[in-house]
Computed example of a mutant assay.
Amino acid sequence: MLATILVEFPWMTTVALVGLVVVGPLAGAWLAPRSRMTGVLLGLSTLVIALATLFPASGEPVVGCTIEWDFPTLGAVELMGNLVLFVPAVLLAGVLTQRPLGVLIAASGASLLVEVIQAFATVLGRSCSTNDWLSNTLGALLGTVLAAAALRIARPTARPQQV
């Protein structure tokens, strides 16, 4: 369903990506002291990932994985969608835990786990692809950079002592 929408409106992933890059660090900095709200938003973004990757799709069940190594480009709707999918969750988790690098590793591992589930749970009608893992991991890397920027913005600055 999501892929169908993205094919009809391929500009959506680019707009979402630009919006995340521009607004992400500022929103993350604002959310940094608001851990409860950040946690709720993280839960919602994780739910979106689960629905987008594990919800049964209509189609022939595929056994095994496709091994490809294509980098996302603005015209590659599915790859860009996979990239954008992980950015908000990693940004939020990085801000919440204040450990963006650890979140990057966990997110890449979670993406790999999703691909393994898609490979073996053929009843989902989903296909496993190394491209999906690569795009998700690149999105997680971007989310990590944005989280680090947000934490830097949120860090209180030291004021010079007045004598």
Rank of each mutant, 00 (worst) to 15 (best):
M80A: 07
D132Y: 08
P61V: 02
V40Q: 01
T14Y: 08
I49N: 08
R99Q: 10
N136D: 14
D132T: 00
A57H: 12
L104I: 00
S35L: 14
R155V: 00
A148Q: 13
W30A: 12
W30R: 14
V103K: 02
L142D: 07
T122F: 05
G94K: 03
A154W: 12
E115W: 10
V62C: 04
G125L: 11
R34W: 13
T73K: 10
R99L: 02
G139H: 01
L124N: 01
S129Y: 00
G75C: 11
T13W: 14
L2Y: 15
P88W: 09
A93T: 01
L146V: 03
A107S: 10
V103L: 09
L6I: 09
A3Y: 07
W133T: 07
A32N: 08
G102I: 05
G24M: 13
S35F: 10
T137R: 01
A16V: 11
T157E: 12
I117A: 15
G28T: 02
V87S: 01
M37Q: 13
A29I: 05
V40R: 06
L134Y: 05
S127E: 14
T53G: 14
L104F: 15
P61W: 00
A154Q: 00
A107P: 11
L138D: 01
A158W: 13
V22L: 15
A110G: 01
L20Q: 12
T13M: 13
V145S: 04
L141A: 11
V87L: 03
V163Y: 10
V22E: 15
M12A: 11
T4N: 13
V48P: 01
I5E: 14
W11G: 11
L101M: 12
G59Q: 09
G125I: 04
C128Y: 02
V145I: 15
A32W: 10
L113D: 05
E68K: 13
R34A: 12
I5Q: 14
A149E: 08
V15L: 15
V62I: 13
I117F: 08
F120T: 09
V18D: 09
G102F: 04
